[in-house]
Each structure stands twice: as structure tokens, then as C-alpha cells.
Design a protein around this nucleic acid. Sequence first.
DNA 1: CTGAAAGCGCTTACAG
DNA 2: CTGAAAGCGCTTACAG
Lengths: 329, 329
Amino acid sequence: MPKKITMAVVAEMAGVTKSTVSRYFNGGYVKKATREKIQKVIEEYNYAPNTFARLKAKESNVIGVVVPTLNSKVTSRVITSIDRYLRDRNYTTLIKNSDHDIDLELLNIQKLIHLNVDGILISSIAITEDHHDIFEQTQIPIVILAQDYEDGISIIDDDYNAGKCVGEYIGRTGHKKVGYIGVYETDEAVGVRRRQGVLDGLASFGIYDPLIKKSDYSFLGGQKNTREILEEMKPDAIVCATDRLAFGAYKVLQEKGLRIPEDISVVGFGGYDESSLLTPELTTLKFDSYGMGYLGAETILKMIKEEPISKKQIVEYEFIEGKSVKNRT
Amino acid sequence: MPKKITMAVVAEMAGVTKSTVSRYFNGGYVKKATREKIQKVIEEYNYAPNTFARLKAKESNVIGVVVPTLNSKVTSRVITSIDRYLRDRNYTTLIKNSDHDIDLELLNIQKLIHLNVDGILISSIAITEDHHDIFEQTQIPIVILAQDYEDGISIIDDDYNAGKCVGEYIGRTGHKKVGYIGVYETDEAVGVRRRQGVLDGLASFGIYDPLIKKSDYSFLGGQKNTREILEEMKPDAIVCATDRLAFGAYKVLQEKGLRIPEDISVVGFGGYDESSLLTPELTTLKFDSYGMGYLGAETILKMIKEEPISKKQIVEYEFIEGKSVKNRT
DNA sequence: CTGAAAGCGCTTACAG
DNA sequence: CTGAAAGCGCTTACAG
């Protein structure tokens, strides 16, 4: 059996030159009769051109995607969405995982640049000086996902307004004594902007003194902070910066025999699938990760075609009303 | 700023030929003094060779990975593990997502073959005739993950024994009337072997007539099947072929006011992180996805180096006792 | 230990 | 509408 066929072989079998076969694949002029001959050979031999041998092409039709982990629901959604968008438009998606290692992330970006990809999408945990340097040295279009990047193009979640939405909701439903479990400020988006939104939302309903805790992103962190809150106050609501933290709150409250939402309301951010599995269903706010991937892919292709784009795009969020917040008015 | 540097340019700046620079990267003979000159230029310009321009190399150092979805916890774990293993050994991982589309999966495999990758890891939901045809036509080493493939190399979960373990557990804890929510038989591993294990395990405790349902892999499917089971019988236990299906069962049972495990025990397969968040915690069985990725990557590299390998490797599982099964003895 | 030359599988002006 | 030729960024025998 033919182990692997090249364009030259296909050309020969079809009785043309590889120039013509190349044109066949790249939308150049090929007479209908010729086209059909080529097509027949391609089908018979299951030929597909080597995307990466297009060394001389101006466009590689490859888009690189750099992600901090492969092991997150949000990242999975974003990549799936990017991949679908690009695949439908005849682009190859090249995924590079940085495994939460900032040096590896930089290296991945470098490699993609040297690979001559047409564009790079970066979902980063933090933008450093080194990132800046690299971005300045390259002409390749780059889009930053989920982090606000003032010196370039970015797609971000609307953390402030999402926070405000939740803060107002808790205020409007008549809560008075609120605990907040947030994350550290190194995460600009969640640690700073989302928290500020929540605080402003609460304040607009006269709640000026929520008890604020900070945690990492873990289930255990949520548990620990919930215990601390319960020791220091008697809250009627706990707002958690992520659903995972809220899972921790559930665990502790249920262990202590406190009822959700009768005794204490709980709310999160994330809209993870599993949030609706909890009892009671978690009230949460879902960011549109599929939308972020879609917009990111769309934007990078627009940049490549030199079409006009926005510097910053803000992705929708959706409030998901579960059964974990009681109306106390 | 230099937009992009090639090996020829690096060579010139270092005062050598690209032959030498190539050797520098591929471990050929380079005098120490020369090596240092090259290294200096590389660092200064942040040069990295274009992995995909190695058209003439016998080895591409690229391994392709085909997955049915990017959007699953299990897949995420497997890819993360593969990627780490290969990265550490100087291989590039090329991930192709088939998005649950069997034609796309076949196309992805074809493309990887034409890309001249050194090996392909395939995590498939089903091995078809077309797969066979492709595998036979290529010399490229291929490892099948999670499906038993008699005509080639595979790494599989121990679905039969895992199923048996759960079936016996349900029998041993004194259950009598069991519902089983499985998946379709096109998925050999889960749809056939896992189910058979469960049935045999149950049978060894005298339970010969469980009510068997089939579903896709979805949360909704789990709900639908649970409703059907409840209409047709009054079970004291429901065994679900995946945790996600078990989540669906939880949902329906809780809606109907049936208590887990007092009224009905529930058990799943998967060991998803979120299973421990449920109330009560789900009793489940966890397969070693990281181990599967590791072994898959290790095996494909061994095949490339023509070292001896096993035809079939079976990955560990771990029984995780939650609180969703009642001892009725 | 290093260079000159041919070639990998493809694309692209340029003729015709 | 198609072919001949040069070239993309790299690797690899083969000399020296």
C-alpha cells in the first residue's frame, strides 16, 4: 500500500504538474476538466497536503493558541470554540499548553512566532515585561484573552459589572450581613475588578461593611474562608468570587447544619455545569467562554485580513438564578 | 527590530554555515568554541528553529494526538499528561480535536499522517472499519487510548473488572432491585465491557435481572433514563456508567423527593472532582487518566525507537467510597 | 570538526 | 489555463 503520497505524485497521476495541484488547493485557476482529474486522484489516495510544508506561502493558515492549562473547564470551552471557528474557515489551530509556567509560556509564544503562524491567541495568567518585549518585536497579530492589555488587542470578561450585578442582587433581596470570599489581587480581573463591582453593588443598597476574605482558587480555600467568616460574624449571605469557592462554602455550611438559603444565602461566579447539580442549585453568574473563544478567533482573522477591529471587546455574562439565595425583604 | 530570524541568518552572525547550526540543534559534532558562538547569537535573537520546516529530517519530533472533545475532564487529564511527557523529551505535541464527529476524526488522522508526524495517539469513542483501513495503510506508529484494539497497540482502562468491582459492591451491600444506566454499544469499552462487568458482579450476588437502560453521555440522558427506570420499577440502587449520568440521576431523585441513599443508592464511574461536592458524596470509581496519558506517550516513543512494548496495557482504577450507597444487609 | 550541495513538500511569480 | 524554475527553512550524506 502507498505509505504516503506527495503533491508531486498526485500531479503525476493526474497528468499535470504540482503547480497545478497546488493551485487546485489554493483556489487558483484550474480548468474544470483538470480539476476533476485531480480530484479523482486525491480521493482515491486520500491525499491531504502537508500544511506545514507551505514554507514559501505568505499565509500559513495556522493560528497558535497559548493556554495556561488544559485542565480547566473555562479553558476547554474557550479552546473548543476557537478550534471550531477556525476549522470552519480552513485554518489549523495549534494549541500550546504552558502548564502554569510563565517561562514555558514565553517559550511557547516564541516558538509560535518562529513557526510563522498567521496569528496568536494568548490566554495568560499575567502579562509581564517579557510579554511586552516579545509583542513589540513581532509583526504577527496577537490577541490577549481574559486579561486587560492596554498596549494591544484584548477580549475580556466584564468583571466589574458582573460583580456589581451580584452585589446589587444580594442587596435587593434584603441581606444585611454579608461575607465575601475573594481571590488575591495579583489577578487583576477577579481579585480587583470583580471584587470592586461586588462592593459597589452592595454599597448601593446600604451595605458598607461586608467581611472580606481572600483565598486561592481552591475548594479547600473556600472551606477555610467560610469557617473564618462564621467565626467572626453571623452572615445572612456569603458571596464567593468563583463557583469553586462556593462549593467550599456549601461543604462547610452543610457540615455545620446551616441551611442554604434559609439560614445563609450563597452565590458564586462561573456557571460551571456542576453548579446546577448542587442542592440547592447555586445561584451564579456565567461568563460566556464560548463567546470569548469565538470573538478571539474572529478578531485574529480580521487582524490578518487587516479589517477594522476593536481594541477591547467585553464579553457577555449571564445571571443564573438558582435556589441558593433567599429573598429576605 | 528583526521580525524573524532564520537558521541561515543565525549561521552568518555566528560565522558558520547553517549546516553547523543545524548540527548544533540536532546533537551533531560541534566544537565547543563554535557551539558557544552559536549559542550567543541564539540567545541574543531569541532564535528557535521552525519545527515544521524539518521536511527532510527522518524524525519530525512531532507526535499527533487525536481527541473526541476538548471539553471533558478525562480528556483534559489525558492530554495534559501526554503533553508533559513529550515536552520533557523534546517532542512537540500536536492536538487535533474531532468534536465528536467521526468523519472529522478520520480526517484528523489522515492529516497527521500527511504531516509526517513520528507517531499518533488516538483517543477514540469508536474504532470503525475506516480506522482499520487507515491504520493498515500507514507505517506510522499508532497507539489507541481507552479502546481495546485487537489489531494494534492499545492502552485501556480495566473496564470489565472495574464494572465487576462496582457490581459486586452493590450486591454485597444487600441491594436487590437494580437499575443500570449505560451507554450505547458502539463504545466497546464502556457500552459493552464495563456493563458486562457490572452485570457479572451483580450476578455473583444473585442479582440476575437488573433493568438496563442506554443513554448518550449527557446529564440530560442520565435524567431521562432515571425517570424511565422509576416508571418501570422500584429500584433500591441505580448504577450509572459515568459520573455525569449519575449527576442526572441525582437531579431526578432529588426532584422526586427520593432520598439518596436511604431510598435509592446511586453509584457512578469517573471520579470527577465534582463528585465529592454532591450531597451525599457520590460513590464512584476513578480511572487513572494521568497514567493513561503517560503510558500512551511512553509507548509511542518506545515504538518510534523500536523498543519492545506490550500490545495491551491496562491502567489502574481506584474505588472511591462516598455516601451514596447504603448498606442494606 | 565544518562546509557545499542536494533535497524535503510545497508555493509563487513568470512565461507561454 | 498550465508548466518550468526558483525558493521557503531546514537536514543530511559526503568531502575535506
